[in-house]
Amino acid sequence: SDCSAVLEKTREFFQICDIEGKGFITRRDMQRLNGELPLSAEELENVFDTLDTDGNGYLTLEEFSSGFSEFMFGPGVV
């Protein structure tokens, strides 16, 4: 279904950011994408802050996927 395709993409993208497979993404992991994605360090910082909804400095798969589904389907559909 569409839903599982989105879940699969979410995991894929999460793993791109979580290079070491820690199970979470840190600010530093995000900055490592600087060379791979056409985003500035500041933009990546912004992305991290936006996704880190509880502000604890760690992005979990759950936080990441709610950000992704917001991007896919708009706010409020999680």
Partner: peptide, 29 residues
């Protein structure tokens, strides 16, 4: 509402980020 403005700006950044990831996976080899 300044919060709405901030949310919209962040949405743009997120869209940019996820679009980049999407094109990274599906883009040119």
């Amino acid at each position: 509402d300044p919060n709405m403005k901030g949310a919209a700006a962040n949405e743009g950044v997120l869209a940019n980020f996820f679009n980049s990831l999407l094109s990274k996976k599906t883009g040119a080899p």
